[in-house]
Computed example of a mutant assay.
Amino acid sequence: MSRRDHYDSLNYGSTSRGAPLKDKVHLDGFTSSDGEGYQLSGEANDFDSQCQEMSNAFQSISRNTSQMERLVRQIGTPSDAPGLRRRLGDLRSSVKEEVSDTAQTLKRLEETAREPGRRHERLRIERLKSEYYDTTKRYRNLLKIWLKPILQRLKLESKKETNN
Rank of each mutant, 00 (worst) to 15 (best):
R3D: 12
R3M: 10
R4S: 10
R4P: 04
D5M: 04
D5F: 08
H6F: 15
Y7E: 12
D8T: 10
S9H: 14
S9Y: 09
L10I: 15
L10C: 14
Y12I: 13
Y12H: 15
G13W: 01
G13M: 04
S14D: 06
T15D: 11
T15P: 10
S16K: 11
S16A: 10
R17M: 12
R17K: 15
R17L: 14
G18P: 05
A19N: 14
A19P: 12
A19R: 15
A19Q: 14
P20A: 06
L21W: 08
L21M: 11
K22D: 10
K22I: 09
D23I: 01
K24P: 05
K24S: 07
V25I: 09
H26S: 05
L27H: 04
D28M: 07
D28Y: 08
D28E: 10
D28Q: 08
F30I: 05
T31Q: 11
S33K: 06
S33R: 07
S33A: 08
E36N: 05
E36A: 09
G37R: 08
Y38E: 03
Y38C: 01
Q39N: 11
L40H: 07
L40C: 05
S41I: 04
S41T: 13
G42M: 10
G42D: 14
E43S: 15
E43L: 13
A44L: 14
N45S: 15
D46F: 12
D46A: 15
D48R: 13
D48N: 13
D48S: 13
C51A: 09
C51K: 03
C51I: 01
Q52W: 08
Q52H: 14
E53A: 12
S55Y: 06
N56L: 11
N56Y: 01
N56Q: 08
A57N: 00
A57K: 00
F58P: 01
F58D: 00
Q59Y: 04
S60D: 11
S60K: 10
I61Y: 02
I61M: 04
I61G: 03
I61S: 00
I61K: 02
S62N: 09
S62Q: 06
S62D: 06
R63P: 03
R63N: 10
N64D: 11
S66P: 08
Q67G: 06
M68S: 02
L71F: 06
L71C: 05
L71Y: 00
L71Q: 02
L71R: 03
V72H: 02
V72L: 04
V72P: 00
R73W: 04
R73A: 12
R73H: 11
R73E: 09
